[in-house]
Simulated scan of single mutants.
Amino acid sequence: MKKMILTMVAMLSMTTAFAEGETANMVSNIEAYEMNINMNKLSDALNLADDQKEAVENIHYVFNTEMTYAVQYGNTDRDALVKRAINTDVKRMSYVLNEEQMHKYLMLLNATINNRGLNK
């Protein structure tokens, strides 16, 4: 009887540990889509003027919202929503940034997307 109870406890603890790992993977997956950035550092990196900074902040807020929204869908729909969000962000940024700033922004965006494993 003692062996049976110990076996049951061991199996429950392994199941719990396994389930915890899945939850952690899910959380890290969701966190990959959160595009919160330090706007002051981005502003410094791109040498933004005050009016540009405000516009970039607004555009990035919409981009972050669209990326967070994409997490709620399945993989196929999610990939399409992420691609659309990125394309929309790049198009909007191109209206605000000059050519040199846009080049830097694209490098930063591409590095961020690659580092988070969103580029497939």
Rank of each mutant, 00 (worst) to 15 (best):
M1Q: 04
K2R: 01
K3Q: 05
I5L: 05
L6H: 00
V9D: 03
V9I: 11
V9F: 06
A10T: 09
A10K: 05
A10I: 05
M11T: 13
M11E: 10
S13R: 09
S13N: 09
T15I: 15
T16P: 11
A17Y: 15
A19S: 15
A19G: 13
G21R: 15
G21E: 14
E22C: 12
E22T: 08
T23K: 15
A24I: 11
N25D: 14
M26K: 11
V27C: 02
V27E: 11
E31K: 05
A32E: 00
Y33Q: 01
E34S: 07
E34K: 06
E34A: 05
N36R: 10
N36Y: 10
M39I: 14
L42M: 15
L42R: 08
D44W: 07
L48R: 09
D50L: 14
D51W: 03
K53G: 10
K53L: 13
E54S: 06
A55S: 12
V56P: 03
V56L: 05
E57M: 03
N58G: 14
N58V: 03
N58I: 02
I59A: 08
H60C: 03
H60K: 00
H60G: 01
Y61H: 10
F63V: 06
F63M: 07
F63P: 04
N64W: 05
T65K: 11
E66I: 01
V71Q: 07
V71A: 12
Q72F: 09
Q72Y: 01
Y73T: 10
G74R: 03
G74A: 13
G74D: 14
G74M: 09
N75C: 06
T76C: 03
T76H: 08
A80F: 02
K83S: 07
A85S: 14
I86F: 00
D89K: 06
D89S: 11
R92G: 02
R92T: 03
M93Q: 09
M93R: 05
S94V: 07
S94W: 03
Y95Q: 11
Y95L: 09
L97W: 14
N98V: 08
E99Q: 11
E100D: 14
E100L: 04
Q101V: 05
H103T: 10
K104T: 08
M107V: 13
L108C: 02
L109E: 08
N110P: 09
N110W: 03
A111H: 01
T112S: 07
I113W: 00
N114M: 06
N114I: 04
N114Q: 08
N115F: 00
R116G: 00
R116N: 02
G117W: 00
L118H: 02
L118N: 00
N119S: 13
N119L: 12
N119H: 07
K120I: 08
